[in-house]
């Protein structure tokens, strides 16, 4: 397993946001984590990136215990996250945002990667000199994704990439996610939009109030009666 989460708990003050989570992601897999608002999805991703401390349990990445590793060291290992709400650097140009995505890397291939991102998301090429804050929500989502890709992820963590976007943009984002998977990137996708996420996922986990309550293949979960009722509105 590339990523192994065992008995992971995390707190916000006294509130236990995650209660003994067990999740595994294999190399090359696209694994979806679905659940309602407040289930703890974002907390889990923050703990995986090291920006929120775990209070119990362990996270192993490629066999190595990373539970207490600093966020920047996890980036070095290839764990990159596209956070909820994009978190782009608003006043900096689109191009600088991408360069900062490669902050832990050095060398001339950074420029080649920027060109690759511009091919993947042509709208970013048009806006390359504009402040990131002037982009629309969908464009900022693409920029956040491209910025994470600049870090050459081995494991890409996506937090609610479809949130607040028009349906046509959601489709575009999910096409990009599928393309990344085809290229061999391992992806852990967190979504409230359970249908779209499970439809493209190899496997899925359902999170409820800080606990994993269900896990199966993406297709099986999509047809599971409980999931349908709770998350697909069917």
């Amino acid at each position: 397993m590339m990523l192994e989460i065992r008995g992971l708990s995390a707190h916000y003050g006294r509130i236990e946001a995650l209660r003994g989570i067990d999740i595994a992601v294999d190399e090359g897999e696209l694994v979806a984590l679905v659940g309602a608002n407040g289930a703890g999805k974002t907390t889990l991703l923050r703990a995986l990136s090291g920006v929120h401390p775990a209070s119990a349990g362990a996270v192993r990445f490629e066999g190595r215990d990373i539970t207490a590793l600093m966020p920047e060291r996890r980036v070095d290992l290839g764990i990159l996250q596209v956070p909820e709400g994009r978190q782009v650097f608003g006043p900096l140009s689109v191009e600088d945002n991408l360069r900062l995505g490669a902050y832990r890397r050095h060398g001339p291939d950074v420029e080649a990667d920027i060109r690759r991102m511009f091919q993947m998301f042509p709208i970013l090429a048009q806006r390359r000199r504009l402040p990131a804050g002037t982009l629309s929500g969908g464009q900022q989502q693409m920029l956040a994704m491209a910025r994470a890709l600049m870090g050459q992820p081995r494991l890409l963590l996506l937090d609610e990439p479809s949130m607040g976007l028009a349906p046509i943009l959601v489709a575009e984002i999910f096409t990009a996610v599928k393309e990344l998977k085809r290229q061999g990137t391992t992806i852990f996708l967190v979504e409230q939009n359970a249908h779209a996420a499970l439809a493209i996922a190899d496997r899925g986990y359902v999170l409820e109030t800080g606990r994993v309550v269900l896990t199966d293949t993406g297709t099986a979960l999509l047809h599971d009666a409980r999931v349908k009722e709770a998350y697909l509105g069917l």
């Binding site: 920006v51 966020p71 920047e72 980036v75 978190q87 608003g90 900096l92 956040a144 870090g151």
Partner: peptide, 22 residues
């Protein structure tokens, strides 16, 4: 880049941490 990384922390602390700015 070092200077822009410092500014990035002020624009989005979380975003900066996630690209590996210490």
């Amino acid at each position: 880049m070092a200077g822009k990384a410092m500014l990035a922390v002020s624009y989005s602390r979380l975003g900066a941490q996630l690209v590996g700015v210490p």
